[in-house]
């Protein structure tokens, strides 16, 4: 049975349609991503799942429960991290954890949780004095303190430095490995690509694509590209005559070859025949960001 079911969700604010028609399911133990540009309807969708908003049309079930009708039951089992939600400035980390623990029937062990999130040394630090990364980790801790079966994390790594982002990703995987299904909202394509098992690309209130990250990039992956520095002078014709090669361009010291599948094998074989070595060879593949642009006709 899917953990989250969203069927033909529709939500408007006055005259503005925020979610036109969104349907997807999330399976047990998945990290499922909702990606899309700002204002695409991502946050409205998850707020309906969290029971914070009432859908105009459509059906939502989380763990088989109706987020509106079975609110009290669901809130014991669903952990939420809200975008830009803060805590009182003078509340310490330990006090915040202790307070949120009291909300749940079967809370997690706070010492283990704080240790796992790297906040053990900040127990007595007030919220205002925490760094951006520490605030974000505390927010994750509060989403997990009730030992939820499902966690909804909205814009998890916004405002974090690259190091903190990677740590956070590793943490999310650890949490999933402990059996928590994760719904992740993000506008970062690299984050979705590295972290999610499957994702729904939402554009103008609709699901533009629903697939694994590789599945999505494969859809638009029509060509491959190689970049290298030849060890000896190289005549263009050597490669442009190959059936696999569609185009060849040069930068100051690099050659860039574009072509179809099996480009790498054909090019390296041709170079080897002339005893040329392709130094610093890189194969560039379509990123999720490229797929996003291709599928929506818009920058993420």
């Amino acid at each position: 049975m899917p953990v989250i079911e969203v069927d033909q969700l529709h939500k408007r604010y006055g005259a503005k349609v925020a979610v036109e028609e969104v349907s997807f399911t999330v399976d047990d133990g998945e990290i499922f991503g909702i990606v899309g540009p700002n204002g695409a309807g991502k946050t409205t969708t998850v707020e309906c799942i969290e029971g914070l908003r009432r859908p105009d049309r459509g059906r939502i079930r989380v763990l088989g429960l109706n987020p509106e009708r079975d609110r009290a039951q669901l809130r014991q089992r669903l952990g939420v991290q809200l975008q830009e939600a803060e805590l009182p400035d003078k509340l310490t980390v330990a006090e915040a954890i202790d307070l949120y623990r009291s909300f749940y029937r079967h809370p997690a062990d706070h010492t283990a949780l704080l240790e796992a999130l790297g906040l053990a040394d900040q127990r007595k630090t007030r919220y205002r004095k925490l760094s951006g990364g520490q605030k974000q980790r505390l927010s994750i801790a509060l989403a997990l303190i009730g030992r939820p079966e499902v966690a909804v994390l909205d814009e998890l790594t916004t405002g974090l430095d690259p190091h903190a982002r990677r740590d956070t990703w590793a943490l999310i995987r650890t949490i999933r490995d402990q059996g928590v299904t994760i719904l992740l909202v993000t506008h970062f394509m690299d984050e979705a690509e590295r972290l999610c098992d499957r994702l729904a690309l939402i554009h103008s209130g609709r699901v533009a694509a629903l697939d694994s990250p590789t599945g999505l990039t494969d859809r638009v992956n029509t060509e491959q590209r190689l970049r290298f520095r030849p060890s000896a002078p190289l005549a263009d014709q050597l490669l442009t005559t190959l059936p696999e090669v569609t185009r060849l361009t040069r930068t100051a010291d690099e050659v860039i070859v574009t072509g179809t599948t099996n480009l790498l094998g054909a090019v390296t074989a041709a170079l080897a025949r002339d005893n040329i070595v392709a130094e610093r060879l890189r194969v560039e593949r379509t990123s999720l960001e490229d797929a996003f642009v291709a599928l929506t006709g818009q920058q993420p």
Binding site: D98, L99, R101, S102, F103, Y104, R105, H106, P107, A108, D109, H110, A112, L113, E115, A116, L117, L144, R147, L171, T174, I175, Q178, G179, V180
Partner: peptide, 26 residues
């Protein structure tokens, strides 16, 4: 390191961690 989501263990502050203090009181 114990698992992140391990259940609460009894401590002096919470002898019965399965039933934390009343949320309103807290």
């Amino acid at each position: 390191m114990p698992p992140v989501l391990s259940p609460a263990v009894p401590t002096a502050a919470h002898p019965d961690p399965a039933r934390p203090r009343s949320a309103l009181g807290k």
